[in-house]
Design a protein around this nucleic acid. Sequence first.
DNA 1: ATAATTGCAAATTTTTTGCAGGTTC
DNA 2: GAACCTGCAAAAAATTTGCAATTAT
Lengths: 139, 139
Amino acid sequence: MEYVKELLKDTPLKATPQRLAILKEIYEAGHIDLESIYKNLSNSFPSMSLATVYKNIHTLKKYGVIKELAISGSKSKYEIAKQKPHHHLICKVCGSVIDIEIDTSFLKKQLKDLKDFEVTNCDIYCYGICSRCKNKTSG
Amino acid sequence: MEYVKELLKDTPLKATPQRLAILKEIYEAGHIDLESIYKNLSNSFPSMSLATVYKNIHTLKKYGVIKELAISGSKSKYEIAKQKPHHHLICKVCGSVIDIEIDTSFLKKQLKDLKDFEVTNCDIYCYGICSRCKNKTSG
DNA sequence: ATAATTGCAAATTTTTTGCAGGTTC
DNA sequence: GAACCTGCAAAAAATTTGCAATTAT
């Protein structure tokens, strides 16, 4: 619980048990959608209301504690924001998300000189099939 | 209208006036969200129902005629799928989307040898501020 | 003590569905 | 004429809101 509490230290947000439980869920899952957070917590935290999850996702995103991954064709997933810069592999079959480090110096080079747009950050989503699903299909 | 009709030729989809109007709207807008399609068409096509827009977006996406851009923090936008490969600049202020061609050879090189994932395609979303919004802010 | 947060229930918004009538190929 | 598509209205799902009671700092 201490790790997730740390995540709030630069924000005005209070460390309520509900909020910490939500953060812990995201932290442990790596990437998780809102409804799954709620369902998973319903066991360990029966009083948790869905509205609280919504409100927290909104607030945590607003303060940059978590980051939303908007995934084409399925629900958004959330991850802890403060991590080493990385991008994402997304399995088209099972929907799982895997972090990947990509050297983006080439990209920055290409974007630096745009004259009608000033880029601050890029998200790279790589779609394909994970080894687990691939083995199921071909095996 | 002929251009958008062409887009359906490799699919089993019928060229209804509603469907063509939706495609034309997406084609002309470049990138547009579902509700805007409906609202824009409500003038020129008063009988168009929202359910028809939903059903068409779903079907057109399924057959690869259009592509969904999942944008973190706002509604998905749709674009015509058959275009020269490109990626997207997204203005954080006004939400506008601009196509950009990026040389992704660097990326492919890095993704080719992953052993636990087989990448089929990548989407690059570059966030920042467009010149129009920048001029408003600083001017 | 103060301001923020929760949980609930209700309201709102978004998306899906079933079906009768009409249309495309 | 067969299969598909539309529009409507209703249903279902997702998200937001207001507020009284509670809790963190």
